[in-house]
Amino acid sequence: MSEDHAGRMGAIHRELHSHLPPEPALRVKALESLLVEKGLLDPRTVDAWIEVYTEEIGPKRGAEVVARAWSDPAFKARLLEDAPSAIAELGFQGWASGHLNVVENTPAIHNLVVCTLCSCYPHALLGIPPNWYKTAAYRARAVRDPRGVIAEFGEVVPDEVEVRVWDSTAELRYLVMPARPPGTEGWDVARLAALVTRNAMIGTARDLAPRVGGR
């Protein structure tokens, strides 16, 4: 075999390898194709789910829920009493929205949500959890040292404020309702919703006061 020929074969070899999906992708594809053939999985469900969670949901729905609660005391009361029914009013049912509890931050209480087992999360309201939510570091330390974890996110919970940690499960998930920041009197729901961050609804952020220049 000439050197030239060996070079060409090497190029073909690399081309084949660049084309072959990574092993886990092949495994998912195998699983999906078998389930579809057996009529146990509709590929349109998979495509629709990916589109919705990639493009649409994010934490926007959760932010709207919080902003509405800030603006409408009757809605807020219903939300704290029976979150699944209240979010159904907004049409926000979806994956894991059936068993949801909304916990309210007050001047005396700060709430922090974790899933110590895996990554249970109110997907229908917040989308896909951030990577840090799924790490062993967060899952362990949120319970052991919640103030320390919150501090790492650049937030300070004053000593006199009680920190409550909620461990999510498949049967019961949590959304934190942060406090409405001062200086937002008269704001409409859309403007308020823009202040509400994903981290605030998990509890790793507390202060949502609008910054100079907006954010």
Binding site: P21, P22, P24, A25, V28, K29, L31, E32, L35, L40, L41, D42, T45, V46, W49, I50, Y53, T54, G58, W95, G127, I128, P130, N131, W132, T135, A136, A137, Y138, R141, V149, E152, F153, G154, R198, N199, T204
Partner: peptide, 29 residues
């Protein structure tokens, strides 16, 4: 390991297509 706190703007929700597929199939089933 807790850092970065927020993904940089424009970071895709799923780093790999198969990440999304795993969760989508789990959701459907």
């Amino acid at each position: 390991a807790l850092l970065p706190r927020e993904p940089a703007a424009g970071t895709p929700v799923f780093a790999e297509p198969w990440h999304a597929e795993v969760l989508a199939v789990a959701f459907a089933l």
